[in-house]
């Protein structure tokens, strides 16, 4: 029931926004077509401005992933995670989630298919996926679009939130499933 409602809202949100904005603007005597094109002309530059930031970030992440360095990292950290009773099978997901959305999607699908969709591990990685966002990608795109290079505490904040979300996902799954 809850899902059906949210799905319906999702499906009608964008049509509603478009009709609402254009309709209301007409009553305010806004020259809708002219104003639209005026705002829209920034779209190209915004997208292009992101390129250097996104290339820098995705190349670094791609190199790291392809090298197998992540397996070393997981091995190095496993004594600590074992102590925290974090299932070793979920570690690739934990490290991939902030780095790469597509990569995390792949890891998740792989783990679900290996361990089964109804297993604790399978469900845990599913919850981990939704617990947080791809921090590195979001920071590169959002700051890149306005050419900000000094990001201050953004990255540590994002990674702390990832850590909190992922740990909660792991422990809450143990309780729920």
């Amino acid at each position: 029931m809850f899902i059906k409602i949210v799905e319906a809202i999702s499906r009608y949100a964008i049509p509603f926004i478009f009709v609402g904005i254009v309709g209301y603007a007409l009553t305010k005597k806004v020259k809708v077509y002219e104003v639209f094109t005026e705002g829209a002309k920034e779209g190209f530059h915004t997208a292009v401005r992101i390129i250097p930031f996104l290339v820098a970030m995705l190349v670094a992440i791609g190199v790291f992933r392809a090298s197998g360095a992540m397996d070393l990292l997981i091995k190095a950290i496993s004594p600590v995670t074992n102590l925290l009773r974090i299932p070793a099978e979920t570690l690739p997901m934990a490290f991939m989630r902030p780095l790469s959305g597509g990569g995390a999607q792949g890891v998740k699908t792989d783990i679900i298919n290996t361990h089964g969709p109804d297993s604790l591990i399978g469900r845990t990685v599913a919850v981990m996926m939704g617990s947080t966002e791809t921090t590195f990608y979001v920071l590169a795109v959002y700051f890149g679009s306005v050419a900000i290079r000094k990001t201050r505490h953004s990255l540590p904040v994002g990674l702390l939130a990832d850590l909190a979300g992922l740990l909660t996902a792991i422990y809450i799954s143990k309780i729920f499933f």
């Binding site: 926004i17 478009f18 904005i21 254009v22 209301y24 603007a25 305010k28 806004v30 809708v32 104003v35 639209f36 094109t37 005026e38 705002g39 829209a40 920034e42 779209g43 915004t46």
Partner: peptide, 10 residues
């Protein structure tokens, strides 16, 4: 950006 500009003007 186009639709947001319309929303802004209104």
């Amino acid at each position: 950006l186009g639709i947001m500009k319309v929303a802004e003007e209104a």
